[in-house]
Simulated assay, not measured.
Amino acid sequence: MVGSRSFSDASLPLFAGTAPASKRPETVKQPSYIRDHRKRLRDRFLSGGATAMPDYELLELVLFRAVPRQDMKPLARQLLEVFGDFNAVISAPLPRLLEVAGVGEAVATELKIVEAASHRLSRARVLQRQVISSWDALLDYCHTTMAHRETEQFRVFFLDRKNVLIADEEQAQGTVDHVPVYPREVVKRALEHNASALILVHNHPSGDPTPSSADIDMTGQIRDAARTLGIELHDHIIIGRSCEISFRARGFL
């Protein structure tokens, strides 16, 4: 019969769902130099922690989970070149991450998981704790969640009579230089939480935490509205790229 082939013909395609053993993903071995490099980095991290590791090596450790069989040092260095430092890479918006050559869904997802974990850990250090005794942790949380944002975000911390932080809420998101804030809504949420005091927080994407006249006016409006209901405004903190400003410390409250 013309064109017929025996079942022993090596040119026949394999059955659906199979592939030659040499090409199956699970049999592709990691090059020894990559495997050894990864082991050395992991050992250093486990023995000495992250403090002695430069940003690109810490970033490599994160990327190892997303891409199991490639040298991740070039991508780690490229991400740092684009965004600046480890925190900025982790905090970068998803669309911007995906614009970087070599960053696919797996890499972007891994970075966002690390970001979410860091936010949750830092939040756990301040929620249900007295603010006075955990002030540094509160500032760390604010910087972790807000310092590298590309748009303004306005948050409110609600405190009880003992100054224990009972709730943390994002009230509004805005643009690169403005966020809409409604004093009535802030006070309404305070009443719903049965809060006795408030701390306001927002970020300046420019990196400069110096308050604008609009920031000062808005703070005064919230202070006055809260005070009529017996709620104290303890502070308003503006988060910059690497520092913050306290309205209370600067004499604005």
Rank of each mutant, 00 (worst) to 15 (best):
residue 4 S to Y: 11
residue 161 R to K: 12
residue 221 Q to D: 13
residue 97 L to R: 10
residue 49 G to F: 11
residue 245 I to T: 10
residue 6 S to L: 12
residue 86 F to C: 03
residue 115 E to P: 01
residue 9 D to P: 07
residue 167 A to C: 05
residue 206 S to D: 10
residue 86 F to T: 01
residue 226 A to F: 06
residue 127 L to F: 03
residue 192 E to I: 04
residue 174 G to Q: 06
residue 132 I to D: 15
residue 229 L to A: 04
residue 8 S to M: 06
residue 98 L to C: 04
residue 115 E to S: 13
residue 131 V to Y: 14
residue 9 D to I: 01
residue 210 T to I: 06
residue 152 E to W: 11
residue 40 R to H: 09
residue 33 Y to K: 06
residue 159 L to I: 03
residue 154 F to C: 05
residue 190 A to N: 01
residue 37 H to F: 13
residue 230 G to M: 10
residue 245 I to G: 00
residue 197 A to I: 02
residue 215 D to R: 03
residue 55 D to S: 11
residue 40 R to I: 13
residue 107 V to M: 02
residue 222 I to E: 06
residue 108 A to W: 03
residue 59 L to R: 08
residue 18 T to K: 08
residue 81 E to T: 13
residue 224 D to T: 12
residue 162 K to N: 14
residue 22 S to T: 12
residue 227 R to H: 12
residue 198 L to F: 07
residue 50 A to E: 12
residue 115 E to M: 15
residue 36 D to N: 13
residue 238 I to M: 06
residue 217 D to N: 07
residue 102 G to R: 04
residue 253 L to F: 10
residue 180 P to M: 04
residue 234 H to W: 11
residue 3 G to T: 09
residue 178 H to F: 15
residue 174 G to E: 06
residue 124 A to L: 13
residue 4 S to N: 11
residue 71 D to N: 15
residue 90 I to R: 08
residue 117 A to L: 15
residue 219 T to D: 08
residue 223 R to Y: 09
residue 111 L to G: 04
residue 80 L to M: 06
residue 196 S to T: 01
residue 135 W to A: 13
residue 184 R to W: 01
residue 74 P to F: 06
residue 115 E to I: 01
residue 183 P to K: 02
residue 220 G to S: 03
residue 91 S to P: 05
residue 179 V to R: 02
residue 28 V to P: 00
residue 108 A to D: 03
residue 113 I to Q: 09
residue 149 R to F: 04
residue 196 S to K: 09
residue 148 H to N: 14
residue 239 I to T: 02
residue 61 L to S: 05
residue 238 I to L: 15
residue 49 G to D: 08
residue 5 R to F: 11
residue 157 F to T: 00
residue 58 L to S: 12
residue 101 A to H: 11
residue 93 P to R: 02
residue 153 Q to D: 04
residue 228 T to Q: 14
residue 182 Y to A: 03
residue 9 D to W: 00
residue 205 P to L: 11
residue 66 A to T: 06
residue 94 L to K: 09
residue 128 Q to V: 00
residue 180 P to I: 05
